[in-house]
Simulated assay, not measured.
Amino acid sequence: MPKYITFDCYGTLIDFQINKTTVEILGERADLVDLHRFLVVFRDVRYYECHAPYQRYSDLLRTSFKKAMDQCGLRYKNSDGDRLVAAVPTWGPFPDTKPVLDHLGQYCKLVIISNAEDDMIAHNVDNMNVAFYDVITAEQARAYKPTPPIFYYALRRLGCNKEDLLHVAQGFNYDMMPAHGLGWERVWINRNKRPGNQEDYGPYTELHDLTGLPVLLGI
């Protein structure tokens, strides 16, 4: 039984509605581009920015949104980034989040490791109404997943070794791949039924949602 279960937040516990929100913000501009391509570009730019020198997550979202729109020939307005940043704290949990975490919390300490800033994620945590032992953010670590420093920071902050925890995440590139390199035990919450990669990044356990975690842990 792990002492700590660490969770990615957005996409794992919180319904990460960034594509839906982005399309709403674009409005009529969405008709001017290949929308699927734009969302892929925006996703890739965000990932790239996580490897750049640290900036607050709100600034990372604004920067990434503008760069994606520039690449796709759309006009960016400062209000676009403001609306996107304002939307993130309003997103709520998946239906399985609270019941599963309330159960797990009776046996293990629950921790979030998130590419977020403190003020922003505080609202998402409130939306979950779950008793977390700690919430570790990129703002505290001054680094983003998938880079190793935030994972090392989490170990130092918790005062534990990698053997003391189980990492649970939806993000394959952001979480599963780097945590593999660090030797962390992992569970992939594959809500979107995407192809994994056990050959290069296994072994890990794959579940389609959180409900299988108590069974996996025998609790």
Rank of each mutant, 00 (worst) to 15 (best):
N78I: 07
V40F: 02
L35P: 01
R37W: 02
K77Q: 14
E49N: 12
R62F: 02
L101K: 00
T12W: 02
T22S: 10
F16M: 04
C72I: 01
M69H: 01
R62G: 07
I5Q: 00
N78R: 13
T97H: 06
R56E: 12
P53V: 12
S79L: 06
L74M: 11
P53E: 14
I25H: 13
P99K: 04
Y57P: 01
L32M: 09
D96S: 07
D34C: 06
E28T: 12
F42V: 10
L61K: 04
V85P: 00
Y47A: 08
D15E: 13
C72P: 03
D82L: 07
Y47V: 10
Q71V: 09
P99F: 04
K109M: 03
T21L: 01
G27R: 06
C72K: 01
K98D: 03
Y57K: 03
R83P: 05
I14C: 08
G92V: 03
E24S: 11
V45Y: 04
D31A: 14
L110F: 04
Y57S: 03
R37P: 00
D34M: 06
F7K: 00
D70G: 09
A52W: 03
L39M: 14
R46N: 14
R46T: 12
G105Y: 03
K77A: 14
H51F: 15
Q71I: 10
Y54C: 10
G73P: 05
S79D: 08
L110W: 00
F94K: 04
C9Y: 00
R37T: 11
L110A: 03
L26D: 02
C50W: 05
T22M: 09
K66N: 11
L84C: 06
G73T: 02
K67Q: 13
D70T: 15
D96M: 08
L104P: 00
K66W: 09
